[in-house]
Structures are given as C-alpha cells and as structure tokens.
Amino acid sequence: MRGRGGLLGAYAALVYLFLYAPIAILVVFSFNRARQTAVWEGGTTEWYRSLAKNDLILAALKNSLIVGGVATLIATVLGTLVALALGRHTFRGEGFTRQLLYLPVIIPEIVLGAALVTFFGALAFRLSLLTVVIAHVVFCVSYVAIVVRARLAGFDRSLEEAALDLGARPAQTFFRVTLPLLAPGIVAGALLSFTISIDDYVITSFVAGVGSTTLPLQIYSMLKVGVTPEVNAVSTLILAVTVVLIAVAQRLQRRPAEREETS
C-alpha cells in the first residue's frame, strides 16, 4: 500500500509540476534583473516600475478595465434576470432558452469571435471598444446566469412565501428576501465574469478596433518582439488578480451549502 501511495504521490507531483512550472518560471523571471537571457541574474522590481511608465500597457489596461467593468455590469444584470426567469417561471421555449444559455460557454471561442465580427460587419458596426464590450457581454451573461441559477436551485421558496404572508408585496419580497439571499451568487457570477473578460484574447482579437487594444492583445503584440521581463511582470499581475477573484467567487458560492449543513 505504502509503495503504491508513494508512486501515486510522485505521479501527482509530476502532473502539478507540468501544469504549474511554466507559471512559476514566469513569476520568478518577472523579478529577474537580466533583460534578455533566461538566466537568473538577481532580483529586482524594476520591470514592475517600468510597467507603470509604459503608456501602451497603461492604455491597454485602461481599456481592459473599462471593458471588464461595463461588460460585467451589463452581464450581471442580464444574467441574473435570465436565471430568475428560468428558475422561477415556466414559459414557452424555456428548455430552448436553457440550452441556448450554455452555448457561449461550450462553442469554440474562435467560432464565436468569427460569428461576432461577421455580425458587426453585416450591421456595418465600426469595430471599437463598444464592440468589444458587446462581445464580452455575450459570453459573460452565460457565466453569470449559470452561477446564479445554481444558487437559485438551493433557494427555499417558503422564505418568499413567508415574506408575502407577513404582508410584503412581491416587489418588496424580491428586494428584502430574494435579492439579499441571491447576492453571494450574483457577486460570484460578477467576479467570474470580470475575470473571464480581463483574460479574453481570442474573441477580443476579432472584434477590437483601432485604439481598443486590451491587455491580453497588448501582451501578445509585445511577445512578437520577444519575451521581455515586462511581459512577465504584467502577466504575473493578471495572474494574481485572477487568482484572488476566483478564490473570492468560489468562497461566495460555497457558503450557502455549508450554512445549511450546520442548520
């Protein structure tokens, strides 16, 4: 048994090494003093400081934050409404709508990107930051709706009945009971949606116009010139933000189940 356990442990270690070594190397080299070589020449935070002075990166970061913020806001509202409609009402085409919801999550990004750029072309929409926002809303809505729906599935309907029973009207019940209880799911969906928006490259590359370069697009264009420590630094920052947001989102999603267990 012990021998097998050891073998399994070693195998697991190799898998994790394979998965995470490149990321670890990226993070380590973002602190490397050497500009070109892949040889460690001592630590520095110089590249992080030079990032702050790089106008191209700062402009791309600004675009990314605008796109991420606006797309998340719209997607969160729309996604929550979709989840409520699917979870609370029976209507014609409900099953179809539910299937449709998963589509942006499962179809290849390159197909979605190509479809969107064709769509904008057909409508004679000029590619700009606006088209990037619209494209991001398209896939973010699905993520928000899926997360909120999961939260809604564990929702005790008798809580809403109790509110109605105590004299609250449906709208008051929604704002005093339903919304506060769904809030962790909605926030988790929003965080997830922001993370995905900030990270997206493929779809954005199709629909971004001149002057609407986002951070992932900027990094990729910098890579064409060569891997610089600045790229490593900005990648490390994105990684850190992503990890934190995902961790928070997961915590928010887990909490209701844990609370029910103890109750």
Partner: peptide, 19 residues
C-alpha cells in the same frame, strides 16, 4: 393574495430569513 389576508402562517421548516 397572501399579503391581503388577516392570517399568518408558521411554516413547516419555519422559513426564518437567514440573513
């Protein structure tokens, strides 16, 4: 509607608002 009736209910699983 429930909010218009002079009755109140004690629910099977109490339905206390957890928040």
């Amino acid at each position: 509607a429930p909010y218009g009736r002079p009755v109140n209910m004690v629910f099977q699983h109490y339905a206390l608002f957890p928040h």
